[in-house]
């Protein structure tokens, strides 16, 4: 295993001094007023200067949906591709241009319905792309149809009698696909969101960030039950590497394992922090990470933060490694030799 934690910063020379406004494009964002996407855009723009990449070396690639417009608003290179397929373009771009920083902006329908296969394979190949999935649990751009993360029984324009589909748990999908970095944040938690995007940007390898995002037009309050200011401390758990899994306004509750099953316990009465699970985002064993990706309100507090962060050699590095190794072993390819390969014979003039 090689250490891939250090980002391939721009070549030595002038330090890159950029600010948020360098990443604001000349196109005015056109999402609905009050949309959670504005917040994600602002936090992403704030996080960018810190990565040490020049603006021209950063590429945002999106699919279709409200999230798909994101690249237009970033003053970097950008590609608004087709529905569900952004990870494929990102894979090809990163493989052929490993020095670029490549982001994929997607939504719950784009990533988990039409593009599900590409999420699986870009993650398991550890392609060094940073996927940010806006999860509003609805199809917003097409005006309100059921999405793969919509609630069971949810009434939408295409499910007037209530959805008969059980929702996907996005983080479990990312973990099952062997993403090397998996995290969750919320559109209305600006600091947490910026920090999460920042950590994602610094990770080298397949990165999946779910952002719980509100669609105030077609699925208003999708996450309100646990994200509202008054309840969030009691209904969510903010994960920190190396810290026990404690939550609650009074930090009086925690998560422990009872056999192989997680349970919420109240501290006191003989239960101490020692009994609680301690978050280890770097654990190679993903069992607890799966658990964290799966537990949800109302049975459990909703985990946010970095759930998994492990180091594996990236797809682009492996591909480039094979090229370098072939050149080392065989010398740089000679076209004349390749053309004349196999048995040949000569016909005289």
């Amino acid at each position: 295993m090689t250490d891939q934690q250090t980002p391939a910063a721009a070549p030595a020379g002038e330090p890159i001094l950029l600010t948020k406004k360098d990443f604001v494009s000349d196109v005015d964002p056109r999402w609905c007023p009050g949309c959670g996407d504005y917040s994600i855009l602002a936090q992403a723009q704030k996080a960018m200067p810190d990565f040490g990449y020049r603006r021209e070396d950063i590429v945002f690639i999106s699919g279709i949906g409200c999230s798909g417009r994101f690249p237009y608003y970033m003053n970097t290179y950008g590609f608004h591709s087709i529905h569900g397929r952004a990870p494929t373009l990102a894979t090809g771009l990163k493989a052929s241009r490993p020095e670029l920083m490549v982001w994929v902006i997607t939504g719950d329908g784009d990533a988990l319905s039409i593009g599900g296969n590409h999420i699986l394979h870009s993650m398991r190949k550890n392609v060094d792309i940073k996927v940010v999935m806006f999860n509003n649990r609805i199809y917003g751009l097409t005006k309100g149809q059921v999405s793969p993360t919509s609630d069971f029984g949810q009434k939408t324009k295409t499910t007037p009698g209530g959805s008969v589909n059980y929702p996907i748990h996005p983080l479990v999908v990312a973990l099952a696909a062997e993403a090397s970095f998996v995290a969750r944040s919320v559109d209305t938690f600006p600091d947490h969101l910026q920090e999460t995007i920042s950590r994602a940007g610094h990770h080298k390898g397949s990165t999946f960030v779910e952002v719980l995002q509100n669609c105030n037009i077609f699925n208003d309050g999708a996450h309100r039950e646990f994200t509202d200011k008054e309840v969030r401390d009691d209904r969510m758990i903010f994960l920190r590497h190396g810290e026990p899994m404690i939550f609650g306004k009074d930090r009086d509750r925690g998560i422990r394992l009872n056999g192989v099953r997680p349970e919420v316990v109240r501290l006191g009465d003989g239960i101490t922090e020692e009994d609680l699970l301690v978050h280890d985002e770097t654990s190679e064993d993903p069992t607890i990470h799966f658990m964290l990706g799966r537990i949800y309100w109302p049975e459990f507090p909703v985990p946010v933060g970095v759930i998994r962060n492990v180091s594996r050699t990236t797809h682009d590095a492996l591909l480039q490694g094979q090229v370098d190794e072939a050149i080392r072993r065989e010398g740089r390819g000679d076209l004349r030799t390749a053309l004349g390969g196999g048995e040949t014979w000569t016909v005289g003039g």
Partner: peptide
């Protein structure tokens, strides 16, 4: 991508 000053978006 990588060309300074010509950042743009296509799609």
């Amino acid at each position: 991508p990588g060309t300074p000053g010509l950042e743009h978006r296509i799609g």
